[in-house]
Amino acid sequence: MSYFFQQLVNGLSDGMIYAGMALALVVVFHGSGVLNIAQGEMATFSAFLAWAASSAHLPWPVVIIGVVVLSFVLGVGVERVFIRPVERASELNSLIVTLAVLLLTEAIIGSIWGFLPRSVPSPFGDGATHVGGVTITYQQIGAAATLAALLVLLYGFFQRTPVGIRMRAATDNAESARLLGVRVGWMLALGWGLAAAMGGVVGILAAPQFGLDDSIFLNVMLYAFAAATLGGLTSMPGAVIGGLLIGVTQTMSSAYVSFIGSDLNVVVPFALILAVLLIRPAGLLGRETAGRV
């Protein structure tokens, strides 16, 4: 039984990471209708920044705050410079632009820090606690607590603050929002910044768990895509539920189904999203959009 709970804990802790990244994807997609394939690579960049700062022996709070602010600025910058020219272009063209941003970010990371994988210390130390035969590392507890706090903050931001409400207005009905004096373009850029900051935090938290090299977050991000799709690309709670579900199913299936093992566990989340989408084409909590004639 403790084996089961151990798998559950591991699954949930991976799932939290996917959930955080999925949330970043949803903030961007819901805001500007762009699937940001580069989100994971941007998070990798943030994680590298954090790694570089922490190897310079800066205290962790400074590192985290600095990286989050910098990621936010970079996110806004990416939207203004790269995405804005294709704001009105087709879905496909903006997808290709984010793909190019991914390649560009990867090249930048490669030329600054090289292509060797690195091991990253955890901000929460290396210890672990044992609860009835289940080992939970401080890293897992810390990451989960931070992400949970972040979710609450984000929720509060979108529900309660004037800026958050303006951002929601800009995504729900850009035209009306514009008439009411909301600067829709900047709200979208803000969304990108927020997503990049989220991604930065997730990157810092995930690096000790997954390791760090120039493309490590490609996989994390693909699971995050699966999570966001599962929950519905327009729903934030959906992204969180999707992330946790995928983390848990993935660990459980490779722990209990010997055929799947560790090499085929990439198949599991996608079988899951296919099954869910066949029943609910807009994901678990997503909104179906009506066709316009």
Binding site: L95, A226, L233, D263, V266, L274, P281
Partner: peptide, 21 residues
Amino acid sequence: RLRGAYLALVTLALTLVFPPL
């Protein structure tokens, strides 16, 4: 049953699943 981004992501899944299979 799927449209737009959802369909794109399902086809992306096919790409990811093929090499391990």
